Amino acid sequence: MDSINVYFLGFVFVALLAEIIWSTTKKKAVFNLKESVGNFGILVGNNLLKPLSLAWKYLVFDWVASFRFFEIPTGIFTIALTFLVTEFAYYWYHRLSHEVPVLWTLHHTHHSSIWMNLTTAVRLNWLGNFISPLFYIPLVLLGFSPEIIVTSLAVSLFFQFFLHTEAVGKLGFLEGIFFNTPSAHRVHHGSNEKYIDKNYGGMLILFDRLFGTYQKEEEKVKYGVTTGFLSHNPIVINFSPLLQFLKGSWKREKQRVREQGVNQLIRKQ
């Protein structure tokens, strides 16, 4: 496992270096030093919590596995099926993280950056890893292997890391068919009204097509959230939305946009 982590970090470092060289050569303002330092601060926090979050994940899955209705044998077909249903569960977890206000307080961390680069991929809420396993409990109850579920999520998250970039343009006929792409994920990070709550897929864009949440990249993406810049401080980025929710002053993006539209209409009248 240690060797896998070394290879992963090496691959990530090379990709990040390539993106920095690309942005410098093309004079693309996709990086902000303070923002990138803040993102890495969030990454450090998640790594410090990783032993605890992994222990929690396996504790939940092992406990639930004792109540499973079936036991699905492991084979090439069932591994592929497990990956597919895990992506399905991820789609709904991700979608609900935008649509349910308390979950949005956690996912907001990932979306509050107004820059799009590979460091944005590691901007993940510290509490999120303790909530996400709960959404895969139905799969374990149905007999899917917890180990393969966790592996499927790891593969998907590795793939998603490379979606957080402007260095890769649209991929022609590959857009919006089966796999997620950097273009589709740039849309997901947009605060443009037509981009909000779109393209929830992880490694696959398939379920967005099936459930009507796919949106292709048509206009320049305005990254971040509708309230604009939040902070470079990892603690503020992680906990400010949750505190606002507890104070009763928290709204999800779609609700905020609708209220802004109503207010503008009232002013015109």
Rank of each mutant, 00 (worst) to 15 (best):
E87T: 06
L103W: 05
V140F: 10
Y91M: 01
N117Y: 10
S97P: 02
L84M: 14
T82A: 13
L118I: 10
V140T: 03
V102D: 00
S97Y: 09
P138Q: 10
L84T: 09
V122N: 07
W126K: 02
L103G: 02
F130P: 01
S113W: 04
S132V: 06
P133H: 04
F88N: 02
V102F: 15
L124E: 11
T109H: 10
L96F: 15
N117L: 08
T86G: 08
S97Q: 09
H108W: 14
L124Y: 12
V140R: 05
W126Y: 11
F88L: 15
V140I: 14
P133Y: 07
L81G: 08
M116E: 04
I114K: 14
V140A: 03
A121W: 12
W115F: 15
V102C: 12
E87Y: 10
N129H: 12
G128N: 10
L139E: 01
F88M: 07
H110G: 09
G128A: 14
W104C: 10
H108M: 10
W92M: 06
W115T: 11
T86S: 15
E87D: 15
L141E: 00
A89C: 15
F88S: 02
T82E: 03
N129E: 12
S132M: 12
Y90P: 00
Y93S: 07
L134V: 15
Y91P: 01
E87P: 02
L124T: 13
T120C: 14
L142C: 13
T109E: 08
H111C: 11
H94M: 06
N129A: 15
R123E: 08
F88I: 01
T86N: 08
E99Y: 10
F135V: 01
F135L: 06
A121Y: 13
H111Q: 11
P101G: 07
H108N: 13
H98P: 05
S132L: 03
S97N: 14
S132H: 05
Y93E: 05
H111G: 07
A89G: 07
L118H: 14
T109W: 06
V122W: 14
N125L: 11
S132E: 04
T120M: 14
L141K: 05
P101N: 08
L81H: 04
Y93H: 13
L127K: 05
S113C: 10
A121R: 07
L106Q: 03
A121E: 07
L134W: 14
A89M: 14
I137Q: 05
L124R: 09
E87R: 03
T109G: 11
I137S: 09
W104F: 13
M116W: 07
L118R: 06
L96I: 01
W104Y: 13
S97E: 06
V122L: 13
N125D: 13
N117Q: 08
V102A: 03
T119E: 03
P101F: 06
F130W: 03
P101D: 04
V140C: 05
P138H: 12
